[in-house]
Design a protein around this nucleic acid. Sequence first.
DNA 1: ATTTTTAACTTGACTAGTCAAGTGATAGTG
DNA 2: CACTATCACTTGACTAGTCAAGTTAAAAAT
Lengths: 147, 147
Amino acid sequence: MRNNTIGSLIWLRLMRFTNQSNQMSNEFLKRFDLTTAQFDVLIQVRTYQPLTQMELAEKVTVTQGGISRMLARLEKEGYIVRKQDWKTKTISLTDKAEALMEQVMPEQLAFQTSFFDDVLSEEEQKTLYALMSRVHKHSEKKEIPPE
Amino acid sequence: MRNNTIGSLIWLRLMRFTNQSNQMSNEFLKRFDLTTAQFDVLIQVRTYQPLTQMELAEKVTVTQGGISRMLARLEKEGYIVRKQDWKTKTISLTDKAEALMEQVMPEQLAFQTSFFDDVLSEEEQKTLYALMSRVHKHSEKKEIPPE
DNA sequence: ATTTTTAACTTGACTAGTCAAGTGATAGTG
DNA sequence: CACTATCACTTGACTAGTCAAGTTAAAAAT
């Protein structure tokens, strides 16, 4: 029994790569006192604000509980505000976060981009994107095989 | 300022996909009372045993501290044994884990494979694998840009 | 043969997340 | 109007990981 279908090899590469690049991204963002997860959340809030926790959780593929905890941390740091609005909590960025993002976004964008620009041609990047899009979309409607 | 280089789009897809498929894998492995992270560690131990914690940490891209905690959990569950051997701790699978892996491995392999087999041709999978291998290898020697 | 150094591992304090049970406010229903 | 759903969010107990300071045992140096 060997771990050797092409699919399983791709799976492993993807896991190791995302793990690796996530760690590097964390290291990179340390200069702004942010983590990758926090940056991800702030980007979404910035783009879609004002929005509810449910909507946000959906966008970053995290559970209700996860987003609740994350927002508590971000609120403590003064990056976001939650106001009870009807029976929902509406999230938006503070000025502090808005200013920070203005500065961080182009840098983080360049950082992410460099993982691919350094080794793949434009054509290859398009291919990779197209393939991953198909795989990702498929995974979203996939079902766990029954026991 | 938009989040729109091809590279950044690929990055996002990869993150969301691995996140998604990791969650699904956890759900799948629940029937064996395992998590994806535990399965990953057990596979490595099975393949390379006996090995030290340092070696294992390297293989699964986790810190020394992380592997120490993970192994403490796996030991408590009776899946692995650590014996102090010289100044190193040597890790190997218990019979219980060996038997479990015999059963789980083919199923998990099929599960991972299905993420790709369902939507990509053999040719496309080879392309994806080749592209990701290059990107991954590059990331391993990449350096964090200076402040 | 003691002392220092070093290598391998552990641990405390933290981020990040899960699941499932618990709150709290609003919306319907009798 | 009180009563029960229900929806949005929180929280307790956990896995999984990070970093940096703390052990511990063997190696090297005095």
